[in-house]
Simulated scan of single mutants.
Amino acid sequence: MTRTQWAAITAVVLALLFTGTTAVIAAGRDDDSGVPRTPSPDSADAGFARDMSVHHQQAVEMSFIVRDSTDDDEVRRLAYDIANTQANQRGMMLGWLDMWGLPKVESGREPMAWMAADGAGMDHGSMDGMEMDHGKPGHEAHDGSLMPGMATKTELDRLREARGKQAEILYLQLMTDHHKGGVSMARGCVQRCAVSTEKDLAEGMVAAQQSELGLMADLLKARGAKPRTG
C-alpha cells in the first residue's frame, strides 16, 4: 500500500464531506433546465435517494463491525473512511427526501423500481454484472439482501463472528461486492435522475467507490485472497 493511494482516497473523502453541507440545500432549488423543485414519489431522484440510503447503511454497519474485529491499521482506516463518507451521503439523501416532502420508506414499492421502470437510459455495460430481464434488474431479494451487492444476513453473521485476518478478508470481499452494486446504482442515477445536485453526488460516488475497489483489491492480494466476483 502506497502513501499516494491513501492520499487519493482521503482527498475524495474530504471533498465529499466538504460539499455535503451545501448539497442538501442546493437539491431543493430549481435549476436552469426548469426541472421541478420537488421530484415525484416514483421518480428516479426519489427512488435513488431511498434505495441508496439503505445500501449505504449496510456499508456503515459492516465497517463498524470490522473496526472491532481487527487491529490492522490499513483495513480499519479504510473502514473508517467508508463509514464516514457513506454516513454523510446517507444524511444528505435523507435530507433531500425531507425537503421534498417524500417518505423515506414506501410500502409496496419494490427496491430498484426506479431503475427497472422501462429499461430506458440503461445499457448492459453500465450495470456492472446486473442482468436485465424484461426491464427488471437481475437481483432477487433474499436473506436480507435487498439490492445488488448487499450482504445477506448470513454473511453479516459470519462477519460478526470473524476475527483478525479472516475478518479483514471477508469484509474486503463483501465490501467489494457492495461497492460494485453501489456503482451500478449510482450510474443509474447519473443517467436517470433530474436533480443536478443529486446527479453530481452520484457521479462522485462512482469515482470514489471505483477508487476504493482498486484499493480493496490490493489489500486482498496482500492477504493472499481476491474478490469473490470478477
Score class of each variant (00 low, 15 high):
Ala26Asn: 13
Gly135Pro: 04
Ala27Ile: 10
Thr19Asn: 12
Ala186Asp: 07
Gly34Tyr: 03
Asp30Lys: 13
Asp81His: 08
Thr85Ala: 15
Asp68Phe: 04
Ala117Asp: 12
Glu61Asn: 02
Val66Trp: 01
Gly47Asp: 01
Glu140Met: 13
Leu94Ala: 05
Val105Gly: 02
Glu74Trp: 01
Ser40Trp: 05
Leu170Ala: 09
His139Gln: 11
Leu213Ser: 01
Leu94Thr: 00
Glu106Pro: 03
Met127His: 05
Asp98Trp: 03
Gly125Leu: 10
Gln191Ala: 15
Gly135Cys: 04
Ser145Lys: 06
Arg29Val: 07
Leu172Arg: 04
Asn88Ser: 15
Asp45His: 03
Ala79His: 08
Met132Trp: 09
Gly108Arg: 03
Met127Trp: 07
Leu215Arg: 01
Ile65Glu: 05
Val12Phe: 07
Met92Lys: 00
Asp218Lys: 11
Met62Glu: 03
Gly138Asp: 01
Met130Asn: 13
Gly149Leu: 03
Asp143His: 08
Gly164Trp: 08
Lys104Thr: 12
Thr2Cys: 06
Phe18Asp: 14
Ala44Asn: 03
Gly34Phe: 03
Thr21Trp: 08
Val66Met: 06
Gln57His: 09
Ala15Asn: 14
Val12Pro: 00
Lys153Val: 13
Glu131Leu: 12
Pro36Thr: 00
Tyr80Met: 10
Val24Trp: 09
Arg160Gln: 11
Ser145Pro: 08
Asp128Phe: 12
Asp81Asn: 13
Lys180Glu: 14
Gly182His: 01
Asn84Met: 11
His142Phe: 12
Ser107His: 11
Ala208Val: 09
Ile9Met: 12
Leu170Tyr: 08
Leu146Met: 13
His124Met: 12
Lys180Val: 15
Arg50Met: 03
Phe18Ile: 01
Gly138Val: 05
Thr19Lys: 12
Ala194Asp: 14
Leu220Trp: 02
Leu220Gln: 05
Leu78Gly: 00
Lys153Leu: 11
Pro103Cys: 08
Ala116Trp: 09
Ala59Ile: 00
Pro39Ser: 10
Asp71Ala: 13
Arg223Tyr: 06
Met216Gly: 04
Val12Asp: 11
Ile65Gln: 02
Pro39Lys: 02
Ala194Glu: 15
Glu140His: 14
Ala27Met: 11
Arg77Gln: 11
Glu155Gln: 15
Thr197Val: 15
Val66Leu: 05
Val190Glu: 14
Arg67Lys: 09
Thr85Gln: 12
Val24Phe: 09
Gly28Arg: 10
Gly20Ser: 15
Ala194Lys: 14
Gly28Val: 07
Val54Trp: 00
Met92Leu: 12
Tyr171Thr: 04
Thr2Ser: 15
Gln58Ile: 07
